[in-house]
Amino acid sequence: MKTNCNRAVAFQFFVALSFAFVACDNCSDTVDAPVSTPITFSIVDPVGNNLVDTSRSYYSVDSVKLFDIEDKEWLYLTYLYVPAAGGYVFSTDCRKNSSGKSSLILKLNSMDSDTLDVWYKQKDTKCFTLYEYTYFQHNGKDLRQSPLTSALLITKAN
């Protein structure tokens, strides 16, 4: 009787092990999964001087926020002081939808807010869905990128 019990346990073990191997494929390892590039931007004056720096800030780093109009939620915004940019560079990501466009409210302080429109396309791979940002507008005007940091330059007349 013990032999049949051992065989049954061994059989169940091998069946479970075979399912584990069937479940393993090239997509099961997500450690090195690719990540969609976030939106990065700096707030500058018409000459290109960063308006969010540590010495003579026109805007406070803590007052800059982004609100997703469609999802009705504040986005998580990170920032880093970048000496080459002459101030802070902000980074975020927005939720994606089927239209391929998101409209965000850029709140600079309690008295100043603008619109940031973001377009993206979906890229499906064998294992992952990625999104690539394709186009940006600030208050209906196209944005340019910083030649030093590649961050979008949101220009504000101060």
Rank of each mutant, 00 (worst) to 15 (best):
C5G: 14
R7H: 15
A8D: 11
A10V: 13
V15S: 06
V15I: 15
S18K: 11
S18W: 12
F19N: 14
V22M: 08
C24Q: 14
N26H: 15
D29W: 09
V31G: 15
P34W: 04
V35W: 09
S36W: 01
S36I: 02
T40C: 06
S42V: 13
D45T: 06
P46I: 04
N49A: 09
V52T: 01
S55F: 13
S55A: 15
R56T: 12
S57P: 05
Y58R: 15
S60M: 08
D62M: 10
S63V: 12
K65P: 05
L66K: 04
F67A: 06
D68Y: 01
D71L: 13
K72F: 13
L75V: 04
L75C: 02
T78M: 08
T78C: 06
V82Y: 06
G86V: 06
S91Q: 06
T92I: 07
T92L: 07
K96C: 01
N97H: 00
G100S: 05
K101A: 14
L104T: 04
L104F: 04
L108T: 07
D112M: 08
S113K: 09
L116F: 03
V118C: 00
K121I: 10
D124E: 13
K126N: 15
Y133I: 01
Y133K: 05
Y133N: 09
N139Y: 03
G140K: 10
D142H: 09
S146Y: 03
T149F: 05
I154L: 04
A157N: 14
